[in-house]
Design a binder for these strands. Structure first.
Length: 969
RNA sequence: GCGAGGGUCGCCCAGCCAGGUCAAAGGCGCAGGGCUUAGGACCCUGUCUCGAAGGAGUUCGUGAGUUCAAAUCUCACCCCUCGCACCA
């Protein structure tokens, strides 16, 4: 064994050894199985330290479970379907400067090679080769025979089967849905295509259809608060805006004529309605006319307002002055104006406000109150916005609908929106209208984006309540780590709507019944864990064209007769049965471990599709979630940098150091921050571990009498083993390593300081087993010097209760406490000791102490009882004053003890004199001073009367400084 | 706005669910000492404040409350991170 650890040589060697022994190639056998999967990486770049975290956690689970005796399958594949790889190929092909720079500098791709990656195929080929190499060189225990890529023909067959099945089961339907759309590109706009308005979301407004009095024209008003329709007093139109009268043909061919702003017309063109301009209508033309509120047929006046923007909503606004500050302000602004130019001669100030929401702390008209409170002057005052927010928030959270709303009275404002919107649409007095939450949204090409309804889109109908019910059932039976993600999952199941599952662009499998569409990449990666079981057979002979629908039906669902399938596919019956048996054996997935970003999408779909396709016994059993990795505090970005690749990390620090660091720096959903300073420190710890192991092996002590310190070490070690096991079961890698490595290293410091040696060989063997799942290479290396075979294949250590020795631990604690006390005294007094005298406890105090302990355990601990008891002792009785004082102190102390501690103290009083004598040399060495131990009952030298401070488990201390007389004159 | 998670002694972070054993583990950083030709590595000590005797005081986002006792329980508030979709 080399004295210094050489990661490169050692790691490479063990990886080859594992590979040639094939110990990670999982085959069905009589053991209990454990199937763990990690989401396969998407290959639009090299693997980075973020992947490293997720995959390493997976590898630790796999290795841990393997050592626990499970037959573990840990497979890996590559995800390449979708658009990003196509996009990357285009960027490389046109030599986009940023892309070239980032992929050269951060992804570590040599420039000449990078420039050749100008089509998707080459990218997939290159990155999949690199990814496998990286995962091998960090020592993942993956069964590589099952590797596949999502564009493989056989995989496409699998996806085709799956979608046909979903279609048959009624989980796919056709519909339309709103997307961000660039009219210039004629394409949906993705996040990274947006120049401005990145944060804009699509919000659904209710379009309430007021009728123009005395005509069939519709004046649609867009609102986020449909309930306020009950309080409308008038409509607002901007007199200076040109509107248009349009013909609207709904998707069900109903026809209507609307008046809206020109901008609104532009937006409507992209909805599922067909619209055509009939004529222009000026704003002025509308003002002064009356409109009919469809909810209650009341007639309201159309008034002018400057705050109405043609860009928002329909350009026509309903006015609810009781609850909307803008409406109140605009109305107030009109009180003194002459509206005769609009043909309005009635007194606007006579318009009565209608209150429809009751909010605690407010009267009938919250908008009026807030506006006045803030001193907002008119509709152009910027504080009107603030007032609106306040009113809206208060009403939304604590408001309730009043009698004005008829049957909705008493309903909370926060719950009414969807209900009312749906009902109003149902009876034809309202429509849905989509709008961005922020304006404008600008595409990379400079064009202003719109919300477009994509028609004839294929959906997975996740909103189906029965489907959701099944997923809830599945979830409730699952093991989720950390546990707090359960509510997160529940909420997301609730929230999930139908999802478009096909696209026009990108790599992937065509929708079998509608070949124009390519199955979207999140939709084609939901149940592929089952494909790993199959893929082993595909790489060894089965051809894609043999993978018929009935083949999949049989091997995954056991539908149909094996003979028929054999005839149809020309796959031998025996092999079909074997595949089926493998599936039955390995499925379901025991744990899927993933980054937290996949919760609201992939992991959810993973659950949905499993419940849709597989019988309940094949539903997933567990999900584990981990956080992200940042780089020196900065977010990593595949396309912009910064980025640290897995391969560079391994090259710079070695596989085990990288593993150790990424596992010990954070756990669960915490984000890890990769800091070069800290990984250097981790490296030193690992080197120290290696050196210690090396020393133990090269200086095997001859076995002698086991001493207290040895029992102490082994006992402490059992706690570490127990903690590590417990932490690993819960996937707390940081806590596990804290115990399995750092705490043990610290224990060893004390052990060495106390001169311990004999327990080391015994400890070492178990210790390296304890660490094998985390840092397998170095552990194999050490193990190979002391035993045969792979340590990877040995059982994982469990705590050995027979080595737990509370007495030994108490003794060391006692010694540590004395050392600390002396050091503190020396520190405070600055005395350089010539001699230190330790006085043990007088017998009478021990007696009182034991009595108090006994009474505590009998639940009779109080001053009176203790005094009665102890006064029976003549020796105590002699200490008239001292005894009660001491007793009082002791009682307070003992009261706070747990019964367990008290019991330990009472049943096994440590013989302090003996320990002190045995430790004298140690103290002398540590403190560089003579140590003298005296019995407090018969002191020979105690000039400062320190001995009276002695208590059980706390000898009194007297430090004799240089120049003081150390002996009795 | 909705949902989830979080704010601990310079930094990262454990403890909180099951209140006392908590001035609060571990790591990093920093300071002093040992070792060494020197540096590195390693070991020891210190790192909230005060203290010439092992002690005391003040701390765990803010403010109240429950309790003999609160980092831990309750309530209110402030602040931070992430997700909110058709994108992997």
């Amino acid at each position: 064994m080399k004295p210094e650890y050489d990661p490169c040589e050692v790691e490479d060697r063990w990886q080859r050894e594992w590979d040639s022994a094939g110990i990670f190639q999982a085959e069905r056998d009589s053991r209990e199985k454990f199937f763990i999967t990690i989401p396969y990486p998407y290959l639009n770049g090299n693997l980075h330290v973020g992947h490293t975290r997720t995959f390493t956690i997976g590898d630790v689970i796999a290795r841990f479970k393997r050592m626990q005796g499970y037959n573990v399958l840990y497979p890996m594949g590559f995800h390449v379907t979708g658009t990003p790889i196509v996009g990357l190929a285009e960027l490389i092909a046109k030599k986009d400067p940023q892309t070239i720079d980032v992929y050269h500098r951060f992804h570590d791709i040599p420039m000449d090679l990078l420039l050749t990656l100008n089509n998707p195929l080459k990218i997939v080929e290159y990155f999949s080769r690199e990814a496998e190499q990286d995962m091998r060189s960090i020592g993942y225990s993956i069964d590589w025979r099952r590797r596949f890529t999502t564009t493989d023909d056989a995989y496409k067959k699998f996806i085709t089967w799956q979608f046909n099945l979903l279609h048959e089961l009624g989980f796919v339907s056709k519909g339309s849905h709103p997307v961000r759309w660039c009219p210039n590109d004629d394409n949906p706009v993705e996040d990274h295509d947006i120049l401005r308005g990145e944060d804009a979301t699509i919000v659904d407004f209710t379009l309430i259809k007021f009728g123009l009095h005395g005509s069939s024209l519709v004046l649609p008003c867009a609102t986020l608060r449909p309930e306020t329709v009950f309080g409308v007093t008038n409509l607002w139109v901007n007199p200076d805006v040109t509107h248009v009268q349009i013909e609207v043909v709904h998707s069900d061919e109903r026809r209507e004529e609307w008046v809206v702003s020109r901008d609104a017309y532009e937006k409507l063109r992209f909805t599922d309605k067909r619209v055509k301009i009939v004529r222009e209508v000026s704003g002025r033309e509308l003002i002064g006319k009356r409109a009919v509120n469809p909810i209650n047929d009341t007639s309201v006046l159309i008034l002018p307002a400057s705050f109405v923007s043609p860009e928002n909503g329909s350009g026509i606004v309903m006015s609810v002055p009781a609850h909307a500050p803008y409406d109140y302000l605009a109305l107030k602004d009109l009180y003194d104006s002459d509206l005769s130019e609009y043909g309005i001669f009635e007194d606007i100030s006579k318009i009565k406000f209608t209150s429809l929401i009751q909010v605690p702390g407010f009267g009938n008209f919250p908008a009026v109150e807030v506006t006045e409170e803030l001193g907002v002057t008119d509709q152009s005052d910027p504080r009107a916005e603030e007032a609106t927010k306040i009113v809206y928030r208060r009403e939304f959270h604590s408001g309730e609908l009043t009698e004005t709303t008829g049957k909705y009275a008493g309903i909370k404002v926060s719950r009414i929106k969807d209900v009312l919107m749906e009902e109003m649409i149902e009876i034809g007095i309202a429509d849905l209208f989509y709008e961005f939450s922020e304006q404008p949204v600008i595409c990379r090409c400079g064009t202003r984006c719109v919300v477009k309804m994509v028609k004839d889109q294929w959906f997975l109908t996740y909103s189906n309540p029965k489907w959701k019910e099944a997923v809830y059932t599945c979830l409730s039976g699952m093991n989720l780590l950390p546990p707090e993600i359960r509510t997160e999952f529940e909420n997301k199941i609730d929230w999930l709507k139908d999802k478009a599952c096909a696209r026009r662009r990108g790599l992937g499998t065509r929708l079998p019944w509608d070949q124009e569409w390519i199955i979207e990449s999140l939709a084609d990666s939901t149940i592929y864990m089952s494909y790993y079981i199959l893929s082993k057979f595909i790489t060894t002979g089965i051809k894609p064209e043999q993978l018929t629908e009935s083949f999949f039906d049989y091997v995954f669902l056991e539908i149909g007769s094996v003979e028929a399938v054999a005839r149809e596919t020309e796959i031998p019956v025996k092999m079909l049965e074997e595949i089926r048996a493998d599936h039955k054996y390995w499925y379901p997935v025991d744990i899927r471990s993933s980054g937290k970003d996949l919760i609201p999408n992939h992991l959810l779909f993973f659950l949905f599709h499993h419940t849709a396709i597989f019988p309940e016994e094949d539903w997933p059993r567990g999900i584990a979630i981990n956080g992200f990795v940042s780089l020196e505090g900065k977010k990593m970005s595949k396309s912009k940098g910064p980025l640290l690749t897995m391969k560079r990390a391994i090259k710079e620090y070695g596989a085990d150091v990288t593993r150790l660091y990424i596992l010990s720096t954070a756990e669960y959903t915490q984000d890890a921050d990769w800091r070069s300073g800290e990984i250097e420190a981790v490296k030193k710890h690992l080197e120290r571990f290696y050196r210690i192991a090396n020393n133990i092996i090269s200086t095997q002590e001859t076995i002698g009498e086991i001493e207290n310190i040895d029992r102490w070490l082994l006992s402490r070690f059992q706690h570490r083993v127990r903690e590590a096991n417990d932490a690993l079961e819960k996937l707390q890698t940081r806590r596990a390593l804290q115990n399995a490595l750092y705490m043990i290293l610290n224990d060893l410091r004390w052990y060495e300081r106390r001169g311990g040696k004999k327990a080391l060989p015994e400890l070492l063997h178990t210790w390296i087993q304890l660490l094998t799942p985390f840092i397998p290479h170095i552990c194999e290396e050490i193990h190979s010097k002391i035993a045969e075979g792979f340590i990877t294949e040995t059982p994982y250590p469990t705590p050995n209760p027979s080595q737990i020795d509370q007495d030994a631990e108490k003794r060391e604690e006692y010694i540590q406490k004395i050392l600390e006390d002396i050091e503190e005294i020396l520190n405070v007094t600055k005395i350089t000791p010539q001699k230190i005298i330790l006085y043990t406890t007088p017998r009478w105090k021990k007696s009182v102490y034991q009595t108090a302990l006994r009474l505590k355990l009998q639940e009779k601990l109080d001053m009176k009882t203790v005094m009665n008891e102890i006064m029976k002792d003549t020796e105590v009785k002699k200490r008239g004053k001292e005894a009660p004082k001491y007793t009082q102190k002791i009682i307070a102390e003992i009261k706070n003890m747990t019964n367990e501690t008290a019991d330990l103290q009472a049943s096994n009083p440590i013989t302090e004199e003996e320990i002190l004598k045995g430790t004298r040399k140690f103290f002398e060495k540590e403190l560089n001073s003579k140590i003298e131990i005296q019995d407090a009952d018969k002191t020979t030298h105690d000039p400062q009367h320190k001995s009276k401070h002695a208590e059980p488990m706390r000898p009194a201390i007297y430090v004799v400084g240089r120049g003081e007389t150390a002996e009795e004159e």
